[in-house]
Design a protein around this nucleic acid. Sequence first.
RNA 1: GGGGGGAUAGCGAAGUGGCUAAACGCGGUUGACUGUAAAUCAACUCUCCCUGAGUUCGGCGGUUCGAAUCCGUCUCCCCCCA
Length: 300
Amino acid sequence: MKKVLVIAGVTGVGKSKLGVTMAKLFNGEIISGDSVAVYKELTIGSAKISKDEMEGIPHYGIDILTLDKEHNVRNFQEYARQKIDEIAGRGKLPIIVGGSGLYIRALLYDYVFHSEQPLDISWTETLTNTELHKQLQAADPIQAGIIHENNRKRVIRALSIIRSTHQSKSELLSQQSQSIIYDAKVFACTMPRDILYGRLNQRVELMMMDGLLDEVSLAKSKAGWDHPAMMAIGYKEFKDYFESRISLEEAVALVQRNTRRFAKRQVTWFKHQMPCRWLDMSLESDIESAINEVREWMNH
RNA sequence: GGGGGGAUAGCGAAGUGGCUAAACGCGGUUGACUGUAAAUCAACUCUCCCUGAGUUCGGCGGUUCGAAUCCGUCUCCCCCCA
């Protein structure tokens, strides 16, 4: 199995920097596991790593799409696996850095995504959550038991899977073994809640000073508010501001709150969805021991 | 000095005699997660020995079988007249 180093975890704790450090120490190259930094136009709000910060280490998966395209897990999985092969083929260590849990999990484990045509889901518009859930109950009772009726997007997705693959989501899942396909060393980075929240709040202020508003304005005129990427934190909150429903201060406060909530969700994800070695990034000693562990792991 | 309005859980705000430990919103916490995932969704949020009990609606005192809700009084806040 190919060795892959993964630096996952919470937003704003210094994953990118640690990635570069590891790359320099262990002859690595970096693949971004981030669902927003892929877009060329979204830089400030996505807290994208800058050219300087890369320190000459090759980074893949950043700025590879423009806003007229749409990204998804399947594309990411395909792209990242290919990059892993290329990097490993050159005798270097592939390092995944990012906080999109599903993306990283889908990359490392044997998730199978079938080729699907974009489906027309306009037929769902006239149906209520309950009606849609009833349909799922009939077609895929296992998933119906797992997906809450109010989780409309998931219910529709489960129904769409049946239409496009003629198999239920439960059947597709049962064909996968949930096993990992790489020799992966996975770190999940975090920080004590109070320190983290202070940093995140401040990061948003800095983004504003760096011109986030202009970036959002440009992006929305290019992609429109309905583009999936514009649903990202740091972008969607400004819709109400541009349409004069809230003040700029209110919009900024919302970005901060949503960033905090997001960080919490990331902790929950990595805590329960993937075995990880947790790192408290506020402790120098944790970072040092991580480096030692990687050194150890590289020798096996 | 006179007149009027108001004080409700971390915050905002309903509630005007029993169905109220108290709607709703915000904030917070916990969790779910296989193609929008920085997305989407759920649960909890007075206290405790928590399928039950205890103490709450500015303070004190009363009316009543029963009060956040009625009466008296005190404290604080806001508005108007002087």
